[in-house]
Simulated scan of single mutants.
Amino acid sequence: MSVSVQLENKTSEPVKASLQPLMDIVRQDLDSTNQIILDRMHSEVELIPTLARHLIAAGGKRLRPVLTLGSAKLCGYDGDRAQKLAACVEFIHTATLLHDDVVDESDLRRGNETANVLWGNQASVLVGDFLFSRSFQLMVEDGSLEVLRILSTASAVIAEGEVQQLMNVGDVNVTEENYLQVIASKTAALFAAACEVGAVVADRSPEEAAALRNYGNDLGIAFQLIDDALDYSAEQAALGKTIGDDFREGKVTLPILLAYQRGDADERAFWTRVIEAEQQDGDLDHAMTLLARHNALGDTFARARDYGNSAKKSLDIFPDSPVKAALIGAIDFAIERAY
C-alpha cells in the first residue's frame, strides 16, 4: 500500500517590491513630518483644516516626502531641516491634488469622495492656495536660497505642466515629445525637487545633488507612465479609482498615442471621434480592445521600466548602503504597481 504525503511547498512566490524598507528607515523623521503637516494646517478659518485634513487623511504613501527624507539620509544628513522640507513637499503635492480634482471634475480619490464634491470647487481651490502659501512659509523658514530656488521652480513648472495638459485635452494629434514634457512637468518636477533638496540640506556636492535630481525625475516619469497605463487596467479598482477616467476626460496619454500611431484608418477615426468629438456607450470597451491589439499598455509599462533603470543608474555615484537599496526598491515599487 502506498501512502501519499502532502509535502510543504518550498516554491515561494517572487518577493513583491515594497516601499516598506524605505518607510522603515525614515519612520521617525516621517512621524515628525506628519506632525509638522498637522500643525501647519491649523487655521482660525475652520473649513481650511477640515478640508485639508480630509485629503491628507485619505491615505497615500507620502511618497514624495519619504523621498526627501530618504535622499537626506543617503547623504548622511540627520537634522530637522529635512523634516520641514518634506512637509513643504507634501503641501505642494496636496495643493496640486486639490486643484487637479477641480479641473478634472473628479468625484473620487483613493476611493473617497473628493474635496470638491464635499465642499465645492471654490473652497477646494482656495484651500489649495492656502497650502501653497504654507509651503512657501516653510521654504523661507529654512533660510536656504538654493532650497527656495529648487522648490519654487518646481511649483512653477508643475503649474505649467497642468496648463499644457489642459490645452492638450481633446487633441488626438498631441506628440509623444509634448506628452513626455507634460508628465515631466506636472509629476516628475516635484519628485526631482523632493530628492534634490535632500542633498542640499546635507551640503553635498553639485554632482550628488544632480544625481538625486535625475533619480527623482526619472522615477517621477516612470510613476506617471504607470499611472497612465493603469487607467485602462483592472488594477485601478484596487487603487480606489475607476477605469477609464483619462479616456472620458479626453486626455491623450502614451497608451492612446501608441494605439493611434499603430492603428489603421478606421481605428484612427475612432480615436479622433472619442477624443475630439463625442463618446458613446461601448467606446471604452472598444478602446481597451485596440490598446490590447497594439500592446499599447505593455509598451507603456516597458517604457516605465526604462526610466526606472535610468533612475537606478543615477544612484551609482553613491556607495552601497541600506538607504540606497531602499531608494532603488522605491523604483521597483512604483513600477510593480502595474502587476
Rank of each mutant, 00 (worst) to 15 (best):
S155Y: 11
P322Q: 06
G308L: 04
H286R: 14
R134V: 13
P319Q: 05
K312Y: 10
S144Y: 11
S133G: 14
R53M: 06
I158V: 10
A265I: 05
R305H: 12
S4K: 12
I92L: 15
A115R: 03
D283G: 11
V182C: 10
L55E: 08
Q261K: 10
A292H: 08
T50W: 09
F136G: 02
Y232P: 04
K10A: 13
A194W: 09
M1Q: 12
L315Y: 02
D129L: 06
Y232Q: 03
E276L: 02
Q181A: 12
G244I: 05
D218I: 04
A82Q: 12
E13G: 03
V15Y: 06
T242S: 15
G198Y: 08
D285C: 01
A57P: 03
I25H: 11
C195A: 08
L212D: 03
E336I: 09
A52T: 08
S133I: 07
D281W: 07
P21Y: 01
V102N: 05
R62T: 06
E267H: 06
V172P: 01
G79H: 12
N121E: 13
N173H: 12
R262N: 14
E278V: 14
S4V: 15
A311M: 04
V26K: 02
R110C: 06
D29S: 13
S185T: 05
L131A: 00
Q224G: 10
E160S: 12
R262P: 04
L19M: 12
R204T: 11
S233W: 05
L166R: 10
L55Y: 07
I56W: 06
Q122D: 15
V102I: 10
L7I: 12
Q261E: 13
E8Q: 14
G298C: 00
G59I: 02
H99T: 08
I317W: 05
L290D: 09
R268Q: 15
K73V: 04
S106G: 11
L225Y: 03
I37S: 00
Q236A: 15
V45R: 02
Q279D: 08
D104S: 12
I331P: 01
H99L: 11
S12I: 14
Y77N: 13
S135Q: 11
N112S: 09
A154I: 09
D246C: 04
N168Y: 09
A194S: 15
A86D: 01
A95E: 07
A222F: 01
S314G: 04
A292P: 02
D299G: 00
L67A: 03
C75M: 06
A302Q: 11
R149M: 13
V89M: 08
A292K: 13
A72Y: 01
K84C: 12
L257I: 14
T187Y: 01
L126H: 02
S135W: 09
V103Y: 02
L19T: 07
N295F: 03
S233C: 12
N214I: 04
R81A: 09
K312L: 13
D129P: 06
M139D: 03
D281I: 07
S233L: 09
I226C: 01
L190Y: 02
D203W: 02
E90A: 01
V127N: 01
I221Q: 00
V147F: 08
I48S: 04
A17G: 03
D227S: 08
N217I: 01
R64A: 07
N34I: 01
W119G: 04
